[in-house]
């Protein structure tokens, strides 16, 4: 079983205050809380007040490809563009792109140091439009990411074969001793 972390979004409850954007950008500033800028937030509220549309969306991964054509969804008589629900940082819009570096932004559930009980956008959402949920799902626990040394060694193994690398390491050790 693996643990899946999700932010549940109830768009009917959103009051459009954008506190989520503010606190996200402040938490992820370096040093922490030293600045804030909603444009750098990993959650954005897409809004169109006259159509009564308020959709908090948190950033997924980066994608190089643009979509071919967009769908229109009609929910409760309101028309939403497919992009309204899309979490990708992509070339067809400037959403989830850091305005200074141009790099894509991605939500990390605030699993930073120090670890938070729940993502801060959830904590600051007084209207409960955002709720945090951890659930168990079938499947493997996600593998721990390899560290820098392992990444380097893996590429040596790939290029020269494991046997050669081991031999070289043994030789190096011998010389050092």
């Amino acid at each position: 079983m693996k643990k899946v972390k999700t932010i549940k979004v109830d768009i009917d409850k959103c009051n459009g205050c954008r506190a989520c954007e503010m606190i996200c950008s402040a938490f992820h500033a370096t040093p922490k809380y030293s600045s804030n800028n909603p444009e750098k937030s990993k959650i954005r509220v897409l809004f169109d007040p006259i159509k009564d549309i308020y959709v908090p969306v948190y950033a997924g991964g980066y994608t190089e490809a643009e979509c071919n054509g967009w769908d229109i969804y009609t929910i409760d008589g309101k028309e939403y563009d497919e992009c309204a629900f899309c979490r990708a940082s992509c070339p067809s819009r400037d959403l989830f792109t850091d305005p200074d570096s141009g790099l894509p932004l991605q939500c990390d559930m605030c699993l930073d140091d120090p670890p938070q009980d729940e993502p801060l956008c959830v904590k600051w959402c007084h209207a409960d439009a955002l709720t945090y949920e951890e659930r168990e799902e079938e499947g493997e626990e996600a593998k721990k990411k390899p560290d820098e040394m392992e990444v380097g060694l893996q590429s040596l193994v790939k290029n020269h074969g494991a046997k050669k690398v081991m031999e070289s390491l043994a030789k190096l050790k011998q010389e050092k001793d």
């Binding site: 009051n15 503010m22 007040p49 209207a127």
Partner: peptide, 27 residues
């Protein structure tokens, strides 16, 4: 009233979207 509304970074809900049939939406 279709929705209670807040100002920037505020949990209070002092405003609202108003939809009166036949006239355009305002807040």
């Amino acid at each position: 009233q279709t929705r209670l509304l807040s100002c920037y970074n505020c949990p209070m809900q002092c405003g609202a979207s108003i939809n009166v049939p036949g006239i355009s939406t305002y807040m």
